[in-house]
């Protein structure tokens, strides 16, 4: 288990390294850094000065090494727009994004798992069939369009919920959270609902499929033959088996929620890192783009690592093979 963990850690570090190379190549080879950094009407002298300042006259590998060094120190340069270290700007926006993602995953699990259990236990009931058909819709509807429709209905037509911004926040551990005020919660509603619909459909379908697969198993029959109650059967024997894939999916989907915050945050003017990156791409704020990408890589590698560890601890069969 410890050797496995060590291997896995090394692997993660390697992935981060590979990704720095890819990001570097993307920014410096595919994109033209000179055109990004220098305004078209700059004179020759100015041009040469900037090229020298950013080390663009250096060979590529030495540029990469200095890039790597900067990355390790968390130094991506100052944002062109904000005039502050890019990393700092992004980190200050991260809690808002995390808040959205956590709320969405909680909602998805709280709704998706019970619905999936029901649909799995009573697959022929009208409600289960209705939910399964509905989940196809949930899978299909594009996130951004769903957001628009929700705004149109709840904000414009009914006027119940605010369509933009984060609302009142309360400081906790030095960071502002909307979780703790009514105003903040009402601002959370629509973006969270938008992010959750797809995940609810996904989790529901997975849980349903899991129940359908586990129920006919011999060990369920054997457990019944032992005289266990239905509750024990469902919440221990069935659920424990289903939770392994579900936990994996929840972990991976948490990453995708952070990714899709790009869309929701843009629409709901949620002041998180997703909106920030879109704004930065639109004005070609290069240090911000690079810093964002590296942070995302780091987040994803961490999530994958955690999911792997969770999976290993949850499934005894996997754990043993890795001992």
């Amino acid at each position: 288990m410890t050797t496995w963990l060590a291997q896995r850690l090394v692997q993660s570090v390697f992935v981060v390294l590979v990704m720095t190379a890819i990001v570097f190549v993307g920014v410096n080879v595919i994109g033209d850094p000179v055109s990004i950094l220098i305004s078209p009407d700059a004179n020759q002298q100015e041009r040469a000065r900037i090229v020298a300042e950013f080390g663009l006259d250096q060979p590529l590998w030495s540029q990469y090494l200095s890039f790597l060094k900067g990355t390790l120190q968390g130094n991506f340069g100052n944002s062109f727009v904000y005039g502050m270290p890019a990393l700092q700007v992004i980190l200050s926006r991260m809690p808002a994004t995390m808040e959205l993602a956590i709320a969405a995953i909680l909602l998805s699990v709280l709704i998706g798992v019970p619905l999936g259990l029901y649909a799995g236990l009573r697959p022929h009931s009208f409600f289960a069939k209705f939910m399964m058909a509905g989940s196809i819709l949930g899978f299909s509807v594009p996130l951004f369009w769903l957001a628009l429709i929700l705004i149109m209905f709840f904000s414009v037509y009914l006027g119940w919920l605010p369509a933009s911004g984060r609302g009142q926040t309360v400081d906790f551990l030095g960071i502002g959270w909307s979780f703790f005020t009514w105003d903040g919660l009402s601002h959370l509603c629509l973006p969270v609902l938008t992010l959750s619909i797809f995940k609810i459909s996904l989790i529901m379908r997975m849980v349903r499929a899991g129940v359908r697969e586990v129920l006919p198993q011999e060990y369920i029959k054997f457990a019944r033959a032992k005289g266990l109650s239905r509750q024990r059967l469902l919440y221990v024997h069935v659920l424990k088996n289903i939770m392994i894939p579900v936990v994996t999916i929840i972990g991976l989907e948490f990453g995708s929620l952070i990714a899709f915050s790009v869309v929701t945050e843009s629409i709901f003017s949620w002041p998180g890192m997703g909106k920030l990156i879109i704004d930065s791409i639109n004005v070609l704020d290069r240090p911000m783009i690079v810093a964002y990408l590296m942070i995302i890589v780091f987040i994803f590698v961490t999530i994958n690592l955690i999911v792997d560890i969770l999976y290993t601890t949850l499934d005894p069969r996997v754990r043993l093979s890795r001992d």
Binding site: V15, V18, V23, G26, V27, I30, G31, L252, G255, S256, A259, F260, V262, V263, I277, I281, I289, L293, I296, F300, N304
Partner: peptide, 17 residues
């Protein structure tokens, strides 16, 4: 490696470049 990143991010990255 590629599948561990959401498609929208990868696409966004490519188009940003």
């Amino acid at each position: 490696l590629q599948l561990s990143f959401p498609t929208i991010l990868v696409a966004l990255m490519i188009l940003a470049f």
